[in-house]
C-alpha cells in the first residue's frame, strides 16, 4: 500500500482539482482529505457519509468567577496573554497549557476538553473517503490530520487498497508536516509564477531535505509563464525532484467544478490528458520501472 500526498506550498494552485482527478484515475484506492481547515474535496466527490465521529482535542481554561479570589496568579503565569485583568479567559488565545490551572491557589479554574471538529468515513463513486471538518477558529489541525490518515490507512488495509490518495493543506506548517510525515511520496502541485516558485522551493525542501520523501513536481497552468515552468524543470533536475509533468490552463476545470464533477467526467480536455500522463509517470517511478 502506498500513500501519496498532494501538497503545494502556495494555495490555490490546483491540489484539490488534481486530487479529485487522481481519485477516479487510480483504481483500488482510498481517498483522504487532510486539508481539514478548508476542505473542498467533498464538493466534487459528493460523499455518502457512513460514519461520523466527534474530534476532541486540547483543553481550554475556564475561571469560575464565584470561586475566584482575584489574586492575579493566573494572569502572572499565562504566557499567552489569554486572561483579562478581570479574570476571564479568552478561549481563542488560550493554548490549553493548564499552567493557570496548576497554579491557581483557589482551585477555581476548570479545564475541559474541546470539541474541535468532526471526522467522517464516506463512500464515494471513486472509493472510500476519510475526511474531516475542523471547527471554526479551532486548534490542533495537525492532530486531526494524523487521525484522518490513520483511519484512511485502516480502511486501505481492510479494502486491500493499493493506494491512499491524500489531499493536503497549503503552507509548510503544522497540518502539512502532519500530512506528509511517513508518507510514501508527495506530489507538489505548483503554478509558474514567482510566488509559486518561491513557495514550491520551500515545500520541496521540507518534503525532500527535511523528511527525505520521494518528491514529484507537477506544474499546473504551465503555459501561463513558460519561462518559469522551464526554471521549475531545471530546479527538479538539480534538486533530485522527479518532474512529473505539466498541466495546461484549461477553462473546463472551473466549469467541471461548478457542476460538481472532476475533469474526466466533465469534458476531458488537455488538462485531463496531462493528468493521465502525470499519474502514469508517478506510478512507473514508484514501481521502480524508472528512477
Amino acid at each position: 500500500m502506498k500513500e501519496i500526498v498532494i501538497i503545494s506550498g502556495k494555495g490555490g494552485t490546483g491540489k484539490t482539482t488534481i486530487t479529485a482527478a487522481l481519485a477516479s484515475l487510480v483504481k483500488n484506492n482510498v481517498i483522504a482529505d487532510c486539508d481539514v481547515d478548508a476542505a473542498d474535496l467533498h464538493l466534487i466527490l459528493n460523499p455518502d457519509i457512513r460514519q461520523q465521529e466527534d474530534f476532541f482535542s486540547g483543553k481550554t481554561a475556564f475561571i469560575r468567577q464565584g470561586d475566584c479570589t482575584q489574586c492575579g496568579k493566573c494572569v502572572e503565569v499565562c504566557h499567552f496573554d489569554a486572561i483579562s485583568p478581570d479574570f476571564v479567559v479568552d478561549p481563542v488565545s488560550c493554548e490549553g497549557c493548564g499552567v493557570c490551572v496548576a497554579f491557581c491557589p483557589a482551585y477555581a479554574i476548570d479545564f475541559n476538553q474541546n470539541l474541535c471538529g468532526q471526522w467522517f468515513i464516506s463512500k464515494t463513486r471513486f472509493g472510500s473517503l476519510v475526511h474531516a471538518k475542523l471547527g471554526i477558529a479551532e486548534e490542533n489541525s495537525g492532530k486531526l490530520v494524523s487521525l484522518v490518515r490513520k483511519q484512511a490507512k485502516q480502511m486501505a488495509k481492510k479494502e486491500n487498497a493499493e493506494y491512499i490518495i491524500v489531499d493536503g493543506a497549503p503552507g509548510v506548517g503544522c497540518p502539512v508536516i502532519s500530512s506528509i510525515t511517513g508518507a510514501s511520496a508527495v506530489i507538489v502541485v505548483t503554478e509558474p509564477t514567482l510566488s509559486g516558485l518561491h513557495d514550491m522551493k520551500r515545500v520541496v525542501s521540507l518534503a525532500g531535505d527535511f523528511f527525505q520523501l520521494s518528491t514529484f513536481l507537477c506544474v499546473n497552468k504551465a503555459d501561463l509563464n513558460p519561462d518559469i515552468t522551464e526554471k521549475m524543470m531545471e530546479f527538479c533536475d538539480t534538486n533530485g525532484v522527479h518532474f512529473a509533468g505539466r498541466v495546461p490552463y484549461d477553462e473546463s476545470t472551473t466549469r467541471a467544478m461548478v457542476e460538481g464533477k472532476n475533469i474526466f467526467e466533465f469534458k476531458p480536455g488537455p488538462a485531463a490528458a496531462a493528468i493521465r500522463e502525470i499519474w502514469a509517470e508517478v506510478e512507473d517511478t514508484l514501481r521502480g520501472n524508472k528512477n
Binding site: G11, G12, D37, A38, V92, L134, I136, A137, E138, E139, S141, A169, P170, G171, G173, P175
Partner: peptide, 9 residues
C-alpha cells in the same frame, strides 16, 4: 495566511 484555524486567527 489562508484557512480558518490558529495562524489566521
Amino acid at each position: 495566511p489562508p484557512g480558518t484555524s490558529c495562524p489566521v486567527i
